[in-house]
Amino acid sequence: MIAHVGEALARFSRIGALISLLGATHALSLILNWFSINYDNVGRSLITGYTFMEPLMLSLSAGAAAGVVGVLSSNLRDISKIRVVTPLVSFTSAGLALLSPLYTYLVKLPSFQNLNYVPETGLFAALFTGIAIAGASVLALIAGLRTKVTQYIGPQARWGPTGAEESFVEIQEPIAEPSLRTVEESFQRPTEVVEPAAPRREERAPLGETQCLICGDIVSGSDSVECKSCGALFHKDCMSVWIDLGNKCPSCGAELRL
């Protein structure tokens, strides 16, 4: 999976925040009851997680390591380092979190002879949060192994679908340099000469006939009006429309006096 640097950093930041939350939850499990000890015909006493020094130090160290993961994943901007540091510290936190309840249950309490103890909620909470931190550490490891980072290269990069997600695809097309053969062919190629078209001649009325300057048709004597200033002839219908537009002769520009 190919991802932009910002996207990869955001992914590690989310994983680091999750690990920090799980580490804090694991440390808080110390205040819960981990075991209950039953005495024959005497009573029952509860043992919290911080009663013994070993689980106390292991769980606090696991929570501190998880907090370090959150800080590094949020502030570290070198993707090559964060891909290594985040899984490494995360697995360290998971190992300490799992070792704390297991050591207490399998080593510490059996060292006391003739002691009838029963696991309580706190032990299962510490064990569950340790497993959860280990799972998040696996996610960080997979994200580091399966993420290839590429820098954004302006318009040469585009987004393309890859499976269920959209990944960053880089497109780089090399620019071909002109060869000597290409230059020679360009000189040998015949040059097309385009001659300009002959100017279009305006259609004029035949000799002896007058053309209306408004519509361009021939003006007959019975259907014409004349400008008193220049003597230009127009159709009566054309002139009636022209006067509505402006009382100026289209030939000389003088005020029309018909």
Score class of each variant (00 low, 15 high):
G246P: 02
A97I: 01
A27N: 00
Y152D: 07
N114Q: 12
L9E: 02
N75I: 10
A176G: 04
I131C: 04
V194S: 09
A143L: 07
I79E: 04
K81Q: 07
T191V: 15
S224H: 10
V42N: 02
Q156L: 09
S220Q: 08
T25C: 12
I15M: 10
A164Y: 07
T191C: 03
L21W: 02
R189D: 11
A205W: 00
S224W: 05
A64K: 00
S179D: 13
S224M: 10
F128W: 07
I133K: 03
E120V: 06
I15R: 02
S36I: 08
V85T: 10
A3Y: 03
N114D: 15
A125L: 14
S222E: 15
R158N: 11
E195K: 03
F91I: 00
L30M: 13
V84S: 09
N38R: 14
I31H: 11
L256A: 04
T92K: 03
P250D: 09
P55V: 02
F128E: 00
P206E: 03
G43R: 14
D40Q: 08
R146T: 14
T150H: 11
P250V: 06
D237H: 08
V219H: 04
S80G: 06
V193R: 10
G49D: 03
A232C: 00
V5D: 08
D244F: 07
T162S: 12
S229K: 05
L58G: 00
T162L: 04
I133L: 02
I47M: 00
E195A: 05
T104V: 02
S111Q: 15
T121P: 00
N41D: 14
P206C: 00
D217L: 08
V169A: 11
V68T: 13
F35A: 11
A94T: 06
S73F: 01
C215I: 01
L18Q: 07
V42S: 08
I47Y: 02
N38S: 11
N33K: 13
L245A: 09
V42I: 14
F12G: 02
A143Y: 03
L256I: 14
S240R: 15
V241Q: 13
G216F: 08
G160E: 14
P196I: 08
A3I: 01
A10R: 10
A136W: 00
Q188S: 15
G95P: 00
S80E: 15
S74H: 05
S80L: 12
A197F: 01
V89H: 01
W34M: 09
M239R: 04
I31T: 11
L76G: 01
T51I: 03
L99D: 05
K81F: 11
I171W: 07
L32D: 14
I82C: 07
N38V: 14
Q113L: 09
A205D: 00
S59T: 11
C215A: 06
C252F: 06
T210R: 04
E177K: 06
L127A: 13
R158W: 05
E184F: 12
N33R: 13
F91L: 10
R189C: 07
M1D: 04
E173S: 08
L46G: 01
L123Y: 15
I82P: 13
S224P: 06
K228R: 09
T51S: 08
L56S: 01
L32H: 11
I171Y: 12
D40H: 10
E226W: 04
V107W: 01
L99Y: 13
G253T: 05
P174L: 09
S251D: 15
L115Q: 09
